[in-house]
Simulated assay, not measured.
Amino acid sequence: MDETRPKADLKRYLQASRDALIWKLDGLSEYDARRPLTPTGTNLLGLVKHAAGVESGYFGDTFGRPFAREMPWLGPDAEPNADMWATAEESREEVVARYREVWREADATIDALSLAAAGRVPWWPPERCEVTLHQVLVHVITDLQRHAGHADIVRELVDGAAGLRAGADNLPPGDPAWWTEYVARLQRTAEEAGGKA
C-alpha cells in the first residue's frame, strides 16, 4: 500500500498544530507570554516548551533516534513540571528556535520511517508501549491540538485575542457590544439552570 498520501495528511495536521501554538505568542510581551493564567500555571511559552519535549521524546527516543540536543528540563534531575514554563534565562526566541529545531528532527524521523515502523515508548505501561509511527503521529497530533486549545484560551485571557489561526478566527461575526451581550446571556442562562436566578 502506498502510504505517501496518509503520511502527508498526518504531517499537515502535525504542522498545523505546531503553527497554532507558535502563533499564539505573536505580539505578546515577555511577561504575557510567560504569565500563568490557571491554577496549575498554564502559560503560553510553557506550552511551546512542553511541545518541544513531547515531540523529541515521541519521534526521537521512541524510534531509537535520539535528537542532537538534550533538553535538561526533561532529565531525571529536573524539577517537577520544568517543561511547562520557561525560566527567566530562557528567552522566547530560544524556546521557539529549539521547538523549530525539534520539528526538523521529528520530520526527519517521519520521512525516514514507514507508518508501520515499530517503536517503543519507554514511559508507557508495558502492555501498550509497543507502537508504530502511525500511532505516535496520531497521539502527538492529538496532544498538540489539546495544548493548542489551552493556548487559545490562555491567549484570550491575556488580551482577548481568539481564533483558529492568523486571518481565520473561526468565530461568528460580532462587535464588542454583541460579544458583551452574548456573554451576559450565557451568564444569565447558567444562573437560571443553576437555580441562582
Rank of each mutant, 00 (worst) to 15 (best):
I110W: 00
L186V: 02
Y58G: 01
W85I: 01
I110H: 01
A68D: 14
M71L: 15
L113F: 09
P126Q: 13
W123N: 08
P173A: 14
R92P: 00
R69Q: 15
A112D: 13
A16L: 10
W178C: 06
V54C: 11
I110L: 08
M84N: 09
R98V: 00
R69I: 07
R34M: 07
F67W: 06
V183Q: 13
A162C: 05
G53W: 10
P80N: 12
A184K: 15
P125V: 05
A82Y: 00
V136C: 06
C129T: 08
E105T: 03
E70L: 09
G119M: 00
E127D: 14
K49F: 02
C129F: 01
E192C: 08
A97I: 00
K7R: 15
A97G: 07
R128G: 11
A68R: 15
G41I: 06
A88N: 11
F59P: 02
L47S: 08
D111P: 00
E191R: 15
R128F: 03
V121Y: 04
E156C: 04
W178V: 09
H50W: 04
A168D: 15
L137R: 06
I153H: 05
E105H: 03
S91D: 10
T87Y: 05
E79A: 15
L14T: 01
S17Y: 01
L186I: 08
N170T: 02
Y13R: 12
L113E: 04
R34D: 04
H139M: 12
L47H: 06
A118I: 04
G167L: 07
H147F: 02
V121T: 10
A168K: 15
E192P: 00
G53S: 11
V158P: 09
A106S: 14
L137A: 04
L113I: 08
A162M: 11
Y13G: 04
E105M: 03
R5C: 00
E55Q: 14
V136G: 01
E156F: 03
P6I: 06
D2G: 03
G57E: 06
A68Q: 14
D83P: 00
V154E: 02
P80Y: 07
R98E: 11
R104D: 12
E90K: 07
A197L: 12
V158D: 05
T40M: 12
P36K: 10
E70Q: 14
W103S: 07
R165H: 05
G46E: 05
K196I: 06
A116Y: 04
M1G: 11
R98Y: 09
T38G: 05
A16V: 02
T180H: 13
K196S: 10
G160P: 06
G194T: 06
V48E: 00
A20Q: 11
A20P: 07
R100Q: 14
Q135D: 09
N43C: 12
T180Y: 03
V48H: 00
A16D: 07
E79H: 10
P39D: 10
R120P: 00
V96W: 01
D9H: 11
L25C: 07
Y182C: 13
V102C: 03
A97P: 01
I110E: 02
T40N: 12
R188V: 04
R185K: 14
L171G: 08
